[in-house]
Design a protein around this nucleic acid. Structure first.
Lengths: 339, 339
DNA sequence: TGACATTATGACACCGGTGTCAGATTAGGA
DNA sequence: TCCTAATCTGACACCGGTGTCATAATGTCA
C-alpha cells in the first residue's frame, strides 16, 4: 500500500460506498451492524486513521485546546517556573481525559502575543496561564472577547467577565499564612512580593495577609515590604535590600515559593537563622518546597484541580454552557521554616 | 461580519480572485506588488487568518510536532519528573523557533500508546520522551519505522537506527561522576539505580562509572547496589534497604537526581552525614538539585541543547535529510554533597 | 395487493484553502 | 508593425472527510 489509506480505499475493499464507511467508522446507527463490522475490519487491516485535517475542516472544530504560557520576560530562559510546569502537567491530563489534544506555546508577554490558534481553527479554545501583568492584558482580553474567542485564564481576572477566570483564593491563602504566623507568635512581619495592583494575584495574597493581621489589631509596617517578581533571584535581592537597610522582622511572608527560597538564601547569608530568628512562609507549594533547608511552610494551590477546572470551564464555554466564577480553596502546608 | 472571514471575502473586497488572494498572502512572486499590498490590507482589516485545517489538508502537512511523554507508571500522578518538564520547556521553545506548533500528550507506558498523531495528519513527526523501558518499546519502534512514521526519541536507542536517537553521553557522564569521587578519595562506593539492560540510560551510566573505577584498578562491589526507578520514593527505599542490610560505603552514585534526593533522605534518617560520612552524586541537574541540603553534586544534561537537537533531527528526518547519531556531552556540577 | 413507514445505502455538494493550467495583458525585439 | 516572451490573473480540480437528500429494499397493515 502506497501512502496512507483513505476512506475510499476502505470503501473499495469493503464493497460499500465511501459515505457508508464514514458513517460506519463513527458508529452511526444508520448503518447495518454487519456492514459496520466489515468496515471496521478492513479499516483495521489497512491501519486506517481518519484524517483530522479533513474532518476538522468539514466540522469546523478541532478537538484541540491551546495553552498559552506567559512568562516573566526577566526570568531565565532555561528555567520555567515550576508552578506553571505543574499546571501544564495537570492541564495536559485533564485534556486527555476529555478527549482533547493540547497545543502548548510559550509567549513572551513583552512581545505581541499570537492568539491566532482559534482564528486559524487550530484550537477550539485557549487557556491563558501566567502571573499576568493585569493592566497590560486587559486590552488583549477585550479583543479576544470581541472576536468571540473562547478562552479562560488563570489568575488574572477579566473585567466584567469573572466567568473567564479560574484562580486560587489568593486572598484566603494570604489569610491562612497570616493566621499561621500569628499563631506562632511572630507578629513582626515582612512581605516580599508585589503589593501593587499590577500583579493581581500577589496583591490579593497581600490583602488577605494584611487583613488577617488587622483583625488582630496589628498594622503591617509598610517599610517592611519589598517588591519582587516570582523568581529566586528577585526574592534574594529584595530580601537583601531589606536587610541592608537594617530593617528587622521575625517573620516573612513571600508571595511565592521561589521568592521565599531566594529570601531564605539572603537570610542565611546574613547569618539570620530560619526558623529560629525568622519564620518564613511561601505560596504555591512547588515540588522544591519540601526539599529546601529548612523545608518551606507554604500555601498550597491544588494544581490538579486547577487544571481540571480550567479545562472544564473552557469546554463549557465552547459548548455555550453557563460558567461560574471559579475560586479554588488554598491549603496551608506547615513545614520546618515556620515552627 | 458574521463568522470568520475566508479568502473569498477578501477576494471580494479587494476586487481580485480568490486564487490571487491565496498567492498574495503567501507572498508569491507571481503576484503584482500593488495587488499584494491591497490584499494584505484587506486581510488585516477583516482580521483574516488562514484556516490551518484547509491548508494542511491540501498540502498534506501540518507544521506541527507531537511530543509523547512516557512516564513511569508507578510515579505519583500529580508529580511529573522535573527533568522531563525541563525538556518539555526546551522542546517547546525549539519548536517555536522553527515555526512549528507542539502537541503534548502523556502516555502511560503500560497501556497501548496511541501514536496516531502522524497517521491522522495532526503532526508531521513525533518526539518520544521517557526513561524508556528499552525492551518493551522495540516492537513499537519497529511498527513506527515500518509505517514510515517520522520520529526521534530521547535516551532509548532504536535497533539499527542510531540516527533516531538523541541522548546524553550517559557512559561519559557516569565516568565523570566516578572520576570526581575518586578524586575526593571516596573509593568505597554504592550505586542506586538500575544496572540491568532494561533501563538503557541507567545502564550506560553505571557502565561508565564502573569502568572509571576499573581503570584505577578498583572493582565495584556488587552487593553495594540497589535497584530503583527514577523517583524520590524509590531512591529512599533502595538506600534504606542497603543501610538495613548493614552495607557500608563512603560514597554513593545515584542514577538520577530524584534517586539521589531520596537517598540523602534515607542517609540522614540513619544519622549518616552527607557529605562527611558519604559523598553523594546524582545525575540530571534538575532545578531542585541546587536547593536540597546539602546542595547536590550532579552530572548535568544540557536540556536546552537536547530539546534543540531533538527538534532539529526530527525536522531533518521529515525533510528527508541525513541525520547523525547524536550524543550530547555531560558536565559535572560540583556542589556540597561531595566536597 | 397496494399504500406507507422503516431501514440501509449511494450520490453529491461542501468545508477553505493550494497548485496547475490556460488566457489576458503588456513589454521587448526585429 | 508583427511576433514572441514575460508578467499577472482567474477558473478549476483537488485534498479527505461529513452531512443532506434521494432512492432502493424490506417490512407492516389494511
Amino acid at each position: 500500500m502506497k501512502g496512507k489509506a483513505t476512506s475510499f480505499d476502505i470503501a473499495h475493499y469493503a464493497g460499500v460506498s465511501q459515505s457508508t464507511v464514514s458513517r460506519a467508522l463513527r458508529n452511526s446507527p444508520l448503518v447495518n451492524e454487519e456492514t459496520r463490522r466489515r468496515v471496521h475490519e478492513v479499516a483495521k487491516q489497512l491501519n486506517y486513521k481518519v484524517d483530522k485535517n479533513a474532518s476538522n475542516l468539514r466540522t469546523q472544530q478541532s478537538s484541540t485546546l491551546a495553552l498559552l504560557l506567559f512568562e516573566d520576560p526577566t526570568s531565565d530562559e532555561s528555567q520555567i517556573n515550576p508552578f506553571f510546569l505543574a499546571m501544564l502537567g495537570s492541564i495536559t491530563r485533564a485534556c486527555a481525559k476529555e478527549g482533547y489534544d493540547l497545543l502548548v506555546s510559550f509567549q513572551s508577554s513583552s512581545s505581541d502575543w499570537q492568539a491566532d490558534y482559534e482564528d486559524s481553527h487550530r484550537a477550539d479554545g485557549l487557556i491563558l496561564l501566567g502571573y499576568g501583568d493585569y493592566l497590560d492584558y486587559q486590552p488583549k482580553f477585550k479583543t479576544l472577547i470581541d472576536q468571540h474567542t473562547k478562552f479562560v485564564c488563570w489568575g488574572a481576572s477579566v473585567d466584567n467577565r469573572p466567568d473567564l477566570t479560574v484562580s486560587c483564593d489568593n486572598y484566603g491563602g494570604g489569610k491562612l499564612a497570616a493566621e499561621h504566623l500569628l499563631a506562632t507568635g511572630r507578629t513582626d512581619c515582612a512581605f516580599i512580593g508585589d503589593a501593587s495592583d499590577h500583579s493581581p494575584e500577589f496583591f490579593a495574597r497581600y490583602q488577605g495577609f494584611k487583613d488577617a493581621f488587622l483583625a488582630k489589631g496589628i498594622k503591617l509596617n509598610e517599610r517592611k515590604m519589598a517588591n519582587a517578581i516570582s523568581t529566586e533571584e528577585s526574592g534574594y535581592h529584595a530580601t537583601r535590600s531589606l536587610i541592608a537597610n537594617n530593617i528587622r522582622f521575625n517573620s516573612l511572608f513571600a508571595a511565592s515559593d521561589l521568592i521565599a527560597i531566594g529570601a531564605i538564601r539572603a537570610l542565611k547569608e546574613a547569618k539570620i537563622k530560619v526558623p529560629d530568628d525568622v519564620h518564613v512562609v511561601g505560596f504555591d507549594n512547588i515540588a522544591v518546597a519540601s526539599f529546601v533547608n529548612p523545608p518551606l511552610t507554604t500555601v498550597q494551590q491544588d494544581t490538579t484541580l486547577a487544571g481540571q477546572m480550567l479545562v472544564d470551564n473552557l469546554l463549557k464555554l465552547i459548548r455555550g454552557e453557563h460558567v461560574e466564577n471559579t475560586l479554588l480553596p488554598p491549603r496551608l502546608i506547615i513545614r520546618g521554616s515556620s515552627v
